[in-house]
Nucleic acid binder design. Structure first.
Lengths: 238, 238
DNA sequence: CCAATAGTGTCTATCAGACATTATCTA
DNA sequence: TAGATAATGTCTGATAGACACTATTGG
């Protein structure tokens, strides 16, 4: 068998295993648009490009794969995201020029306030608006991974309110609805949106109001169980 | 750092990567029950136990991870399943007594006829009824993986007809409905079930009939696009 | 004819879509 | 008061649940 240029690790047991990485796609909602966290690669492969805040699974530090995802996200944002969901695992010999490699991808969501301060102080970590990210030449297959995460999030917006984890802890229904509209790609009837959320009892009314422009809007918070809830009936796809 | 007993591979680059395996959970529907394909482990770790028809990713043979899943399934059944869907990746230092390991799991479906002959001739591969599998002491965390696959399939039964790939190529609506009832765990109104399938136009009427007992039943075949279809409204969960 | 299974008619309940109306704030 | 945004009333349409009914086979 011919020897390939490869990132694969060799062993005395005669089994070569590919390089194993984790790539979380961390989204947030800010200024009426969806943003994704990108990191500038100042060394190593794909140097100079921007990419996902991922890294290699460290079997000494990490008890499981999700721990790797959390570790990398904390490294880049200084906080744990309230939503972290395994997305898909991509492994082949084409995605990394060094050879066969595998990445376990995650979708993560966080409010913008929670990590704005830290991200703003660091120059190699940035929130990039989703459209702009799509036009950048990113490292490896990170562009495709972002597309997959975005599509999954679109589906979630049709039958759950888990996208709400991309909002700050307290938010208005208008904000939550607009985020869903962004994800789904079409406007939603305000009545439909509010009805289903009220009936499913997924939010806590903080009692506080936010005022800007017209009538003050009630501020809500997500109930802990809300990420698992699934509506029986979906919103209409665009 | 203390040296652990580990299945991890070492390298001259100083990166240790865990053992990488693939574990497909292949279901079929036969004699009014759901069965899962198990393989007897006659050597290696967990010797003597039954487990999933998985194996180690071979970076020489396999172009991508899904290819590994297909290869292992063909090895055990001699045929390619018509449905193969990535499930979840589990990786931690506890699941394999040898140390840190990772498995990329798949849900696969196939009709019983398609592989009955081959499976019957081999003694170390067996279809096991799902309840019975739950009572066996399986290798590694394969019991949990089967549970996860089963739960995913239950969800699919609520909003799609992809479970139909567990039927033979030609099947009756009664068979498809009963399979869904098994998965969901409750009876479905015949009218509801037929209506949604007819409206979504997911099946091809072969024109043939199957007769047994009463009035002959029409035989259908899945349309190629049917696995991706998603009903806007779910069946009620139990 | 009866038993058995396949397939349909039809009513109700639920909930998303549509859109008008009312409520509560600031300037 | 006007303008803006939040929140609600209410009608329609689509579709799942319930269940009775008809259809087609074998014996």
């Amino acid at each position: 068998m011919n020897k390939r240029a490869s990132s694969a690790r060799s062993t005395r047991h005669g089994i070569e295993t590919p390089l194993l990485t984790v790539d979380p796609v961390l989204f947030t909602y800010h200024e009426k648009s969806l943003k994704v966290l990108l990191v500038h690669r100042s060394s190593g492969p794909e140097e100079g490009r921007w990419g996902l805040p991922g890294g290699i699974v460290d079997i000494d530090m990490d008890d499981d794969i999700e721990a790797t995802a959390r570790r990398k996200l904390v490294e880049k944002t200084s906080v744990q995201p309230p939503y972290l969901d395994q997305l898909e695992t991509i492994g082949n010999r084409a995605r990394d020029p060094r050879g066969w490699s595998v990445t376990v991808c995650y979708t993560a969501l966080i409010g913008h306030q929670a990590c704005a301060r830290h991200v703003d102080t660091v120059s190699d970590v940035r929130w990039v608006e989703l459209g702009a990210a799509g036009r950048m030449k990113l490292a490896f297959d990170h562009r495709e991974i972002i597309d997959i995460a975005r599509e999954r999030l679109r589906q979630r917006a049709l039958y759950s309110i888990s996208p709400g984890y991309a909002l700050d802890e307290e938010f208005t229904l208008a904000e939550l609805q607009h985020l869903h509209e962004l994800l789904i790609g079409k406007t939603i009837q305000k009545r439909s949106f509010r009805r289903r959320i009220e009936q499913a009892d997924l939010l806590i009314d903080t009692g506080k109001k936010r005022r800007e422009g017209g009538r003050p809007a009630a501020l809500y918070r997500l109930k802990p169980a809300s990420s698992g809830y699934r509506f029986v009936r979906n919103l209409e796809a665009p």
